[in-house]
Design a protein around this nucleic acid. Sequence first.
DNA 1: CTAGGTGCAAATAATTTGCAGAGGC
DNA 2: GCCTCTGCAAATTATTTGCACCTAG
Lengths: 326, 326
Amino acid sequence: MPTTLADLTRLKPSGGKRSSKREQIVNVFLGQEGHLSADDLVDLIRREDQRISRATVYRTLQWMVDAGIARKVDFGEGRFRFEHSYRQPRHFHLICKTCHRSFEFLSSDIEALVEEVATARSFAASQSVVQIYGTCEECRTGRDSSSEAGQTDLLFARDALRIAIATERSGFEFYSRAARLTKDARGRKVFEDLALEEQEHMGKLEARYGELLERDPKLESHPTFLFFKGAANGLFAEGTERLLQGVNDQQALMIGIRCERGSHRFFKKYGERFEDSEGKQIFLEFADEEREHLDLLVREYRALVRRQGRARRPARRKARTTRSAR
Amino acid sequence: MPTTLADLTRLKPSGGKRSSKREQIVNVFLGQEGHLSADDLVDLIRREDQRISRATVYRTLQWMVDAGIARKVDFGEGRFRFEHSYRQPRHFHLICKTCHRSFEFLSSDIEALVEEVATARSFAASQSVVQIYGTCEECRTGRDSSSEAGQTDLLFARDALRIAIATERSGFEFYSRAARLTKDARGRKVFEDLALEEQEHMGKLEARYGELLERDPKLESHPTFLFFKGAANGLFAEGTERLLQGVNDQQALMIGIRCERGSHRFFKKYGERFEDSEGKQIFLEFADEEREHLDLLVREYRALVRRQGRARRPARRKARTTRSAR
DNA sequence: CTAGGTGCAAATAATTTGCAGAGGC
DNA sequence: GCCTCTGCAAATTATTTGCACCTAG
């Protein structure tokens, strides 16, 4: 919970005096969950202090937006609502027209497509809004679907970890198979080491996942928060499939490089896009690890090419193109 | 241009009297392009008739929304804008924060993802908003990028045709190859016929595309309006690739069935989602054609299985599973 | 003749602003 | 003491509504 005063003091980038009123309003805002309208906030404030005027609340909200504490969101109701911004990544919304609650989600997939559209239209996108209007499960079925929001902070971390774990798992599988298929002893050793490392790190991530579950035992009952198709099988799945179609040592290395590069790019980009949070942390750490693997593989690839060159000096590349589609 | 009175009379589903004022307002609205605010419309109306009150404009706008002539859109400016709805499919927006103009696009890909998210959260989605805020090319580079909107109506038809043509082309390729690979004479004939049909229809679609270009010679200079990844290679591309991995006659038929089914579903679904327009027409016609092909293939598949059963009566299925991944 | 459409002015609703006084540094 | 924050009331902006009047079917 980022509601402590200690946190708040760190939260004042732009000028502004410390003032009891402002402090009070910010505290009430941060202590609240969900999406408040200016009026909601006034009501809440009035409960503990009758003497705060509506204008001050509006002014403080504007200040919070400027300071990066709050984000102004528009659900098409003819007035704005405000949500926490601190530690929370930008996200999209599902908005129930019946109960007027809203639910958050992230979709790396949608973001990628949005970027593609902007690029195709040579449009410099700075922000995007995705809102799905409709009826939530509870309003349709009547029963309480126990979704109850649940700190998006934790959900983001949970899903980030799941993706990282799936990637490690598929990486492990990839390197194990690659090791089995590699003829060159030195190359085999590289793959074996990497497989081991992936497995080890996977263990660590799983432990971390366990810790997360301890913090909120119901965490796993919440639906997906971060949608990312690549996550399902892990980013190495495609590479593993290509391995099975038969490749030589050099090709195996190259496929590994491509997978690590894709993985590194995804985690780096996604990690950087977000404001400070545990999920961001996980993504960036993971990006670093993948970077190291990538460098290792690239070094190994160069070494292999050099050795091969020495082995058959005058013989030009015989390029046994293995006709494997495309 | 759907601005004629003839068109308008057809446009009054719900009750309402013919009234000169309303007629006048609707005409001015439909004669205009882009996204008008209520105030913009009042200004335009006042130019030809001083005696129309602001309230009537608001009331008429509401009536137009109910009648399906207009759609209310919210660009987060603190007021609503209105856009034509008649003949225009629901679309998403790119919104320039500098010049405040907005540009439209469709994305089947984003729609699919949005649907997936809603399903995963058991949310009954009824409508979705996708808005990309940023700076348009013109505002960034200064020069006129000649984009000038261009009837989205025509752009939709253009892109629908392009997708249909790409699909026909890939279908032709698929059936040609399938014919070449098929041993059974009767099966070969079926594939050959289909290849011919795809080619023929492709010609027709290309002619239609040509007609479209005549209506607006600059049509091709406009950027993509309808984003759909499947369009690039056509919906049969994947099937063709699988053919090349070696299959028997029965498998080839099955792959064809799967492609036609996917294609039919896509065109049907997309066609139905849209309001009356040329693009919709193209999609639905195409869906029908694919349906016919699908039925033909299914009949042929059943016939083949029957013939095979007769050939080796007591022999149980020998199921030569060709280990081709998954 | 009567339901619905229209104008005008007043009402709402969300948000902003002018100004005088209060408070932190 | 100065500069910013605050409260209050008035202003602004977008949109709606009450009510008397008008008009097409």
